[in-house]
């Protein structure tokens, strides 16, 4: 596979910065599992989502907060679904079905599976994946609808359920600023899923508003260290 970055040369000298979201996603393949940051319209990598729609790759498993478009101006995973690219959606909020629409139709027809999960459980599974653990025992709730077939074990005075680690082929992230080494900082609620998804993605791509040279970000302020970030793209205006 050729390096999708232009002007090949020392990859390090150029840092991890890619010229466009399309270039950063050039090697995504059919059936990939994709993590997508964002909560209530904040911290969503809109440019990368748009590039993914134009890439057209399908059979994707998308893991994100949910397909709940906040407004027509904000690119949402719902558009990927409407474009027929998503085979499975794993999300705490599922999708907004109040207004019907193409997302509900894909689910009702069986073309897309939907698995809804509590976000605290999903976050912990992703962290376990990113941290090299095989899985974790999380508190089990009485008459828990998520238990289905999972191992329950007692530790101390209560029951815990085994949740397996989760990783993904790609993580599409949004951050405010990056340096060329991939160190990231966020702004307000933009942070949400992005740091834990950065850990769990095999290829983690951050869309940012500003790219610094190394030293441009205070090392004390870094939230996602560059070791978790493989590619950086500048958000288009």
């Amino acid at each position: 596979m050729s390096d999708p970055r232009e002007n090949s040369g020392s990859t390090v000298a150029k840092g991890k910065v890619y010229p466009s979201p399309e270039a950063a996603l050039a090697d995504i393949t059919q059936g990939a599992t994709v993590l997508i940051g964002g909560f209530a319209g904040r911290g969503r990598p809109e440019g990368l989502l748009r590039a993914l729609v134009s890439n057209g790759v399908d059979g994707l498993t998308c893991i994100c907060q949910g397909a709940w478009p906040q407004s027509p101006e904000i690119m949402d995973v719902a558009e990927l679904i409407a474009n027929g690219q998503v085979r499975k959606l794993i999300a705490p909020l599922g999708f907004y079905s109040g207004s019907g629409g193409p997302v509900a139709a894909f689910w009702q027809s069986g073309e897309m599976d939907v698995e809804t999960v509590p976000p605290g459980v999903l976050a912990e599974r992703l962290r376990a994946g990113g941290a090299g653990l095989a899985g974790v025992f999380l508190p089990a709730a009485p008459s828990d609808r998520f238990l289905g077939g999972k191992e329950v074990r007692r530790f101390g005075d209560r029951d815990f359920v085994f949740e397996s680690a989760l990783r993904a082929d790609f993580a599409l992230l949004r951050a405010e600023e990056a340096d060329t080494l991939g160190n990231l900082i966020y702004r307000g609620s933009q942070r949400n899923w992005n740091p834990v998804m950065a850990m769990a993605g095999r290829v983690s791509i951050a869309e940012v508003s500003l790219v610094h040279e190394p030293g441009g970000i205070d090392p004390e302020a870094v939230i996602t260290p560059g070791i978790f970030v493989n590619r950086v793209v500048l958000q288009a205006d």
Binding site: G94, S97, G98, T116, P118, P119, G120
Partner: peptide, 21 residues
């Protein structure tokens, strides 16, 4: 409320984590 808002599909959001903490 999500149980009522998304018929046929339980969308727990944070409610499950918060309530069971």
């Amino acid at each position: 409320w999500t149980t009522a808002a998304t018929p046929g599909l339980f969308s727990p959001g944070w409610a499950w984590d918060l309530a069971n903490g």
